[in-house]
């Protein structure tokens, strides 16, 4: 798989994202926010976590107008895979590639801890190798680290997301039960990650790149990168 990871001024998870995305032997390109083109043959663009432009004005509000975002938006509109992690999710919402917004956590504090995520939809390119099913949903343990992660959107958009299975990850208890106590930040319906209408753009607040090795607590995040690699391999095989 060919992966590009964008570095904005203030990104701080770009190196981790490049490392995690390259663990399976994928080619990883370092992309700069001022770039006006993407490398040819790219399969996936990752917008990493951090505090792009110091979170000035609103999280992601200024990064969304970076030169490279024009390319990312047209790449996504052509069906290219885009994954926004944490600040990357906030940027995707500001850019209009995903509905809704991420606002201040309900307890007003920055939260940095492991959380459990229920994989709600295993048919997206980001989750096809998670082995999740509605009878037995897969639960992943992945850390969050954010001050503004409370997902909010209009009632109409929320209904659309739910009705079309576009909520991909929900905060849950270790056994997979979605409860109020397992919701760390007050997100609507415990939403931790969503995809766009065509399923090729994912935004998620938790950091899979920080859960890519058992030595550092969890390797559950790898299943997302493995899913992407498997999806790319499958689609490439289908088109050859």
């Amino acid at each position: 798989m060919n992966v590009g990871v964008v570095t904005f001024p203030g990104s701080n998870c770009d190196a981790d994202a490049r490392w995690a995305a390259g663990l399976d032997g994928s080619t990883v390109h370092k992309l700069w926010h001022k770039d006006t083109s993407l490398p040819t043959g790219l399969d996936l663009v990752i917008l990493p976590g951090g505090f792009s432009y110091g979170d000035y004005l609103r999280t992601g509000a200024i990064a969304r107008f970076s030169p490279i975002m024009n390319e990312v938006i047209s790449f996504a509109n052509r069906g290219g895979l885009v994954m926004g992690i944490c600040n990357g999710f906030q940027i995707l919402c500001e850019a209009g590639l995903l509905p809704g917004a991420l606002i201040r956590n309900s307890d007003l504090s920055f939260i940095c801890k492991d959380v459990y995520l229920r994989v709600e939809n295993d048919s997206t390119p980001f989750t096809i190798s998670t082995g999740s099913s509605s009878q037995q949903p897969t639960v992943l343990r992945i850390p969050i680290a954010h001050g503004e992660g409370r997902y909010t959107t209009s009632d109409a958009d929320l209904r659309r997301l739910e009705d079309t299975g576009r909520v991909v990850f929900r905060y849950c208890d270790p056994d997979g039960t979605v409860s109020e106590t397992s919701n760390p930040n007050g997100s609507m319906k415990n939403i931790a990650g969503i995809v766009n209408d065509s399923g090729n753009v994912l935004g998620m607040m938790p950091h899979p790149e920080r859960a890519a090795n058992d030595l550092i607590g969890s390797a559950d995040g790898l299943t997302i990168f493995r899913s992407l690699a498997a999806f790319v391999e499958r689609t490439t095989a289908a088109t050859v």
Binding site: L57, R58, A61, I62, F65, C93, E94, P99, G100, A101, I103, T152, T153, S154
Partner: peptide
């Protein structure tokens, strides 16, 4: 365009 986000 920039100063506010109508979603929130």
């Amino acid at each position: 365009k920039l100063l506010t986000n109508p979603v929130m």
